[in-house]
């Protein structure tokens, strides 16, 4: 009996071993997972600009273009990192593209200069103006691009999706960082969406489409009414504007998510509603061309952006710029 008792006491004492692991098991994993936060907090500074080397043959191709006025090409980047994910441009490639732009004589302008241009006042612009934009407010874009832009004395616009910023999403820039960018004079911070930069289910087959340009379909309620759609989209637009207002940031321009302003919507009311909404809420709403072969923007007409993808080489970008160069076209027309 006493032997049995002492055995039980021994077992109890033995239980101290696994018990001692409880604090480690409870807190340990959360420490390891805090690595994401750690990384986000400390690995958020801009990265050094990669060195760029052009061969003599390439240099010969990138010669200064003739000055032009009354038109501004607009570039749209998504992310600056090494991922081969169709959208991202590597830091090295981005550095090459910026070096090419500088060498070819292009001069970046600010959103304020662009707004003056869109209002018809084309004075005060540099001889070969260009507007560089980034979508989504991504940290990697800032980290990868900032030092390259600084190196060339260039300027860019960051279009921000505010919902993830407010949620503290690690992939996106924080308000603090966005303010720092704005204050650096190198960046303009502009709105891209609140929560509306995502796809929603658009039909019973489960197909999906952009939040702004589709009536939502749910299994429970079927298609949403147009009234519900317009309220949903308008609310998102007002929310992003309010977010910018609360931060003391300007929201004069807007980059339409996925470049889709309802041009291919099944319901014709969508395009009209969305165009009107964007035209009354923003002075410029940037969109993309379906074939990604847009012309330079003019003081009037749609504000098309040329999208730069993973596969877009410096030569391809150079090619687009040259193909649509108004000065060159003007020469051709006059000849």
């Amino acid at each position: 009996m006493s032997r049995l008792l002492s055995m039980f006491r021994g077992m109890g004492a033995l239980a101290l071993l696994p018990l001692s692991a409880v604090p480690l098991l409870l807190v340990g994993p959360s420490l390891v997972s805090s690595h994401t936060r750690f990384d986000r907090k400390y690995h958020s500074a801009p990265l050094a600009a990669p060195a760029v080397y052009f061969t003599p043959a390439t240099l010969a191709r990138y010669t200064p273009v003739a000055p032009y006025s009354g038109a501004v090409p607009v570039l749209a980047y998504h992310g600056i990192n090494a991922n081969n994910d169709h959208y991202s441009v590597s830091r090295e490639e981005f550095a090459r593209q910026m070096a090419m732009l500088e060498r070819s004589g292009y001069r970046t302008i600010t959103i304020a200069q662009y707004l003056r241009f869109r209002s018809g006042d084309t004075r005060g612009l540099p001889p070969r103006p260009i507007l560089i934009t980034f979508d989504d407010g991504r940290l990697d874009s800032y980290r990868g691009a900032d030092k390259v832009l600084a190196q060339h004395g260039m300027h860019a616009v960051m279009y921000v999706i505010t919902a993830p910023v407010k949620a503290g999403n690690a992939f996106h820039l924080s308000w603090e960082e966005l303010h720092r960018m704005q204050d650096s004079g190198r960046w303009d911070i502009q709105p891209h969406a609140h929560d509306g930069h995502r796809l929603i289910t658009t039909d019973p087959e489960g197909d999906s489409g952009p939040f702004y340009s589709n009536l939502a379909f749910t299994r429970s309620d079927g298609f949403e009414t147009f009234a519900a759609y317009s309220q949903r989209v308008a609310t998102d637009i007002y929310e992003v504007k309010d977010d910018f207002k609360a931060q003391g940031l300007s929201s004069a321009t807007f980059a339409v998510p996925f470049g889709d302003h309802g041009q291919s919507a099944k319901d014709p009311r969508v395009e009209k509603f969305l165009d009107d909404l964007l035209a009354t809420q923003f002075r410029v709403a940037f969109i993309q061309a379906d074939d990604n072969e847009p012309r330079y923007t003019r003081p009037t007409g749609p504000a098309f952006r040329y999208e730069v993808f993973t596969a877009t080489t410096t030569d391809a970008l150079h090619g687009w710029l040259v193909r649509h160069d108004p000065a060159a076209r003007g020469t051709k027309a006059g000849a």
């Binding site: 071993l17 480690l24 420490l31 390891v32 750690f38 400390y42």
Partner: peptide, 19 residues
């Protein structure tokens, strides 16, 4: 337990080497 614990500490240090 001891081997796992020391291993975990090393892994933790490696992950947070950026500090």
């Amino acid at each position: 337990y001891l081997v796992l614990l020391l291993g975990a500490v090393i892994v933790f240090k490696a992950i947070f080497a950026g500090i």
